[in-house]
Amino acid sequence: MDDQAFLDYVQAGGQVETGDSMPADYRAKLVKFIEMHGNSELMGVLPEREWILRAPTLQRKLALTAKVQDEVGHSQLIYRVVEDLGKPREQCLADLISGKAKFHNVFHYPTKTWGDVGVIAWLVDAAAIISQKALLRCSYAPYARIMKKICWEESFHILHGRDVILTMMNGTDEQRELVQEALNRWWGPLMQFHGNPIPKEDDPMYVWRIKSQGNEEARQQFLDGYVPQIWELGLTVPDAKLRKRDDGVWEYSEPDWDELKHVVTGHGPKTQERLAFRRKFLEQEAWVRSVVLAEAA
């Protein structure tokens, strides 16, 4: 199959397996996209991990540990897919901690209070699941397949997050304030999360049918699903322009695309600290991987 025939094939809904021949550009785009997803799961662990030690009840402790465990599990599934496409896991990790590889914008920000823990589990995971559900139709079948398990586990995360938020909203004024403050902090990054609204036909990830929806489509879906849920709790979304038009389209203030670019290129408020933290443990435990977990010669 030449490159054009391959392109026609995936655009018609055809799926590709690991051993199939594929254009070099397709393989490179797959590795880039899937690796960034793996990096995001792994770096997404860190903002929440700090709060595993501070969870305020045994039930929350167990649920948060299980949620972070799932995210590590997702990164394992995802890096396995990348490895089978030709890039070893150790190389992905090396590129991550050297700052060469990227990860999602929301994981570059601090987690200041237990309110943030709730907002992350509820809304950041909600935004992520919208992207991930669209990957169930990815042209690369091994990636589409693991997405089933990932989406299944994410649905528990959203429930956990919503339960944390509802409990706080039913609590004291201080607790309600923690939620509102967290929402104010996370709204900007959440609006940037799905990326700038380029037409999907210009997005190479869509052209190869790695993604199956455009950025703005995903953001509209997020707003439509979650803004009513935010409003019904008496929370205020920090955007005076936010409204749903009669034709069903959500209007909002232009997200700060410069901030998005700045943050994902390694300049977020917590980027360097988190990379340093990951580097520290990767180096500290390198002997376990090389001496102990290496297969017997």
């Binding site: 599990g73 394992q76 599934l77 396995r80 896991r89 977990l293 297969e295």
Partner: peptide
């Protein structure tokens, strides 16, 4: 049905890792 794969040094580790994943 195929579920996925794990990276393990031997069958004992593979079993423990697969059980949890």
């Amino acid at each position: 049905a195929h579920a996925g794969s794990v990276d393990a040094p031997d069958a004992t580790f593979a079993e423990a890792f697969a059980r949890e994943q």
